[in-house]
């Protein structure tokens, strides 16, 4: 479903991804772990279509289609979703209004009828309840003044509403308390499906006990330095990244 091959990406003249390759089949859940600054979020944003990155080599294809030239909204229309590590605060735009606009933009693109206010509210209520969130939150301006955990739950709410084909979750677990972590993991697990792939970026093995990945990749210095089963996360937990640091940041 997602095939990244020898991807080189620089930002502001600095090469961040340095020949990254990764294949994520449909239905699979892969985890990406790696030290701070190793390029995890860069990878996530390059997939989601943020501007300002220069791809100097390599490709990223989604369902056979070249992703890298597409604007962010078209990638979303293809079914790509990024759960932001740092969700953006947007004053003056109510969360509800935003969520409805997002859902309807995607429905419209798929040729489905847009949901009216009542229909949307019904769907929204169901998902909000499923994630143990407060309905009042939907009336507040998007992410403004939300606690760290509330912002992350709001990302998962969007995931649940938009039901993408590829979900990239960038540290969705950081900032969540243990109960929230379980709720969020249950929400993510419920979305596991044969036609949906997920790339879960995390620093903590703990999340992976709730969302058990099919494969774990270690990203360091802009390349995948190791891939394997769950045991990799356990090695990391015990020994840290030194165990895999064939490429270090200082070398980058």
């Amino acid at each position: 479903m997602l095939v990244i091959d020898n991807l080189h990406v620089s930002v502001g003249g600095k090469e961040i991804l340095r020949g990254l390759s990764l294949t994520l089949p449909a239905g699979a859940v892969h985890a990406v772990m790696g030290p701070n600054g190793s390029g995890k979020s860069t990878l996530a944003h390059v997939l989601a279509g943020r501007e300002g990155y220069t791809v100097t080599a390599g490709t990223a294809r989604f369902a056979g289609q070249d992703l890298l030239g597409l604007p962010a909204e078209e990638r979303a229309h293809l079914g790509i979703f990024l759960g932001f590590q740092y969700p953006v605060e947007i004053p003056g735009v109510s969360t509800m209004y935003f969520l409805k606009a997002a859902v309807n933009a995607q429905r419209k693109h798929r040729g489905e009828p847009e949901l009216d206010a009542m229909e949307f509210l019904k769907v929204l209520r169901r998902e909000i309840k499923g994630l143990g969130m407060d309905e009042a939150m939907a009336q507040r301006p998007l992410n403004v003044g939300f606690s760290g955990g509330e912002k992350k739950r709001n990302e998962v709410l969007q995931l649940a509403l938009l039901r993408p084909k590829l979900a990239v979750l960038d540290e969705t677990d950081s900032g969540l308390d243990i109960d929230a972590l379980k709720t969020v993991a249950a929400g993510v697990n419920a979305l596991r499906a044969p036609d949906r792939a997920m790339l879960i970026i995390t620093h903590y093995q703990r999340l992976l006990t709730y969302i058990v990945p099919d494969r774990v990749h270690v990203l360091s210095g802009g390349v995948i330095v190791a891939s394997g089963g769950e045991e990799i996360a356990e090695v990391l937990e015990r020994e840290g990244y030194a165990a895999f640091a064939t490429t270090t940041l200082s070398a980058a």
């Binding site: 279509g49 909204e73 979303a76 979703f81 969700p87 953006v88 997002a102």
Partner: peptide, 10 residues
Amino acid sequence: YYLRSRGIGV
């Protein structure tokens, strides 16, 4: 970018 990444056009 945040809005566009949700499929909302420019």
